[in-house]
Structure formats: C-alpha cells, structure tokens
Simulated assay, not measured.
Amino acid sequence: MKVKILTDSASDLPEEIIKEYDIDVLPMTIIKDDKEYKDRVDISPKVIFDGMRNKEVFKTSQVTPIAFEEKFEQYAKQGIPVVYVGFSSELSATYQSSVIAKDNVLTKYPEAKIEVIDTYAASGGFGLIVLEAAKFARAGKEVDEILDRVNLAKESIDHIFTVDDIEYLYRGGRVSRTSAVLGGMLNIKPILEVKDGKLIPLEKVRGKNKVFTRMVELMEERSIDKDFTNATICITHGDDLEGALKLKELIEKRYNAKNFIINMIGATIGAHSGPGTLALFYPKTKL
C-alpha cells in the first residue's frame, strides 16, 4: 500500500505542491493575546508579518502528542504506512511529540507501520526534504527507501538566510542584545545557516544589496557539485516577494538555474524571523 507522508506547517511548502503530492500537514500553533490560531489554517503569514511591523508579539507552540496520536491512529486503522518527516528537534518540541504519539499508537496497533524522522531542518530546506519523501512515496517506494532518501536529502540540502531586522533574532534568543543594537545602527545584515538543526551565525554584511550577492556566492563556495542547472532551489521570504525574485534572478544569471520554489515563510517560522527575512535552500550535492 502507498506510504503516506505526514509533515508539519514549519515546512513552508506551497499549497499547490502539498496538493500535488497529497502531503498531510499538521499545523503548528500561533499564540497572540492568549488566543490560539493554527498556522495557515486560521491565521495567515501576512497577518503575522503586518502585526510584527506594528510591534505586535506572537508566540508559537509545537504540534501536540494528542494531534499526532489522532493522525497516526487514523492511518493505523486503515492499514496505511505513514512517515512523519519532522521539523528540527533543536528548534521545536514537535518531533518529540511525534515520538510520544508513535509509541502510544503502537501499543494499540502493534502491526501499524509508523516512522518518524527528524530533518534537523526548517522552512524551505525542511520543505525540500519533505518533497523528496513525497516524490518517493508517489512513485510507490517502500518505507525504508523513503527513509534513505530523507537521510540523503538531509545531508545535501543547505540552508542560508538573512533577516531584515536583527532585533527579531534577539527576541528569539538567537543573538545578543549588543549585536542587535549594533546591527541596527550600522545597517549590518547577518547571514546565518542552519547546522545540526540549530541557527548559527555565518557572516555579517553591510547593506542589503551586498547580502544578495554574498548569498549567491555562498552557494558555489559551500557546494560540492557546484552545478545548479537542474537542481530544485527554494527561496522563502518574510513578505518580501520583490527581494525573493531579485535573489532568484541573480541565481538564474550566475548558475543557469531553472527550477525554483518561491513561497512566503509560514507563520511559525515568521513569528521568530520577522518581516523581510530571505532564506535560500539548495542541494550541495546532486539528489
């Protein structure tokens, strides 16, 4: 029986891809003024970014073990194998929720085929890994083959990003107060990476235009194959489509790249990175 791919809304995949590959997505929770909203269900990323520009504060919460348990049990009752491809355990407790739920469901349905895997990834990089799993599932591959593909994609997909206002990273505990103040005063734009599931500062560049150029250069410097002609490249943005398209144009010109996924960062990631964030995800080796 065809394997079902389950993920969460921090994967930031466009709706058309979710539908095309029949991916099941559990929403993360957004909290504002003690009210809870489901990411991309009853609150949009645009609302989050507009609110943050107006100094509103949003918090996020993981998918609960109960939500996972209900979903796993749904597939277990139908005898459908399910693979949850999950948000980095270093950035959220969502993966831990899936582990708890899996153990609970297997006590009731010991024959069920349920696998959970930590991508150590976020946003579009996470999404590209989910997409690889979904392509294999649609092709009729077995669970073990899908897990192997996910592990290969985890090693290959690179994550680099920049934020428009470093203050948001300070609020999330990603940089010091001194770095945030100096960054704002000197128009310093940080370039960060996701490494081993964590956000790691990579470089500091003065001015947004230089950030675009440097991000494109880093693609070549950090890659092994250095050939992006047929690679799928993902760009996610914090309500800055103009910036995302500019970055896409630079990549097209430099590397003759053709395949792009461009999407707004979801409410879960956006609540921490802020409006104006630009993130770039690409394979360092051919998949």
Rank of each mutant, 00 (worst) to 15 (best):
M1I: 04
I5H: 05
T7V: 09
D8M: 15
D8K: 09
S9W: 07
S11Y: 05
S11I: 09
D12P: 10
P14C: 05
P14K: 00
I17D: 04
I17P: 03
E20R: 12
D22K: 13
I23P: 10
M28I: 12
I30Q: 04
I30P: 06
I30F: 06
I31D: 00
E36S: 08
K38Y: 11
D39H: 05
R40L: 07
I43L: 00
I43S: 03
V47S: 10
G51M: 08
G51D: 01
R53M: 05
N54F: 09
V57Q: 01
S61K: 09
Q62D: 04
T64Q: 01
T64S: 15
T64W: 00
P65E: 06
P65R: 05
P65G: 07
E69P: 04
E69A: 12
F72K: 07
E73D: 01
E73I: 00
Q74A: 02
A76E: 05
A76N: 04
K77I: 05
Q78L: 13
Y84P: 14
G86M: 07
G86L: 09
S89A: 13
L91W: 06
A93G: 13
Q96K: 13
K102I: 12
D103E: 14
K113Y: 04
V116Q: 11
I117L: 13
I117E: 12
A121W: 02
G127N: 08
G127I: 08
E132Q: 13
A133S: 12
K135A: 04
A139W: 09
G140P: 10
V143Y: 00
E145S: 06
I146Y: 01
I146E: 05
R149S: 15
R149G: 15
N151W: 12
K154G: 13
S156W: 07
I157E: 11
I160C: 02
F161S: 07
D164Y: 15
D164W: 11
D165I: 05
Y170R: 09
V175P: 11
V175F: 11
S176H: 10
S176W: 11
T178E: 13
L182F: 06
G183W: 11
N187T: 02
I188K: 11
I188C: 07
L192R: 01
V194L: 03
K195Y: 14
K198R: 12
K198D: 10
I200P: 12
P201Y: 06
R206D: 08
K210G: 14
E220T: 10
R222I: 07
F228T: 00
F228A: 01
T229A: 06
T229I: 08
A231C: 03
T232E: 10
T232Q: 08
T232M: 05
I233Y: 04
I233C: 05
I233M: 02
D239Y: 08
D239K: 05
D240Q: 01
L241R: 13
E242P: 09
G243A: 11
L245Y: 14
L245I: 13
L250Q: 15
L250A: 14
I251Q: 02
E252K: 01
E252N: 06
E252M: 00
K253E: 15
Y255K: 08
N256V: 11
N256G: 12
N259M: 05
I262H: 04
N263D: 12
M264Q: 07
A267V: 08
I269S: 03
G270Q: 03
S273G: 01
Y282C: 01
P283C: 09
K286G: 03
K286S: 11
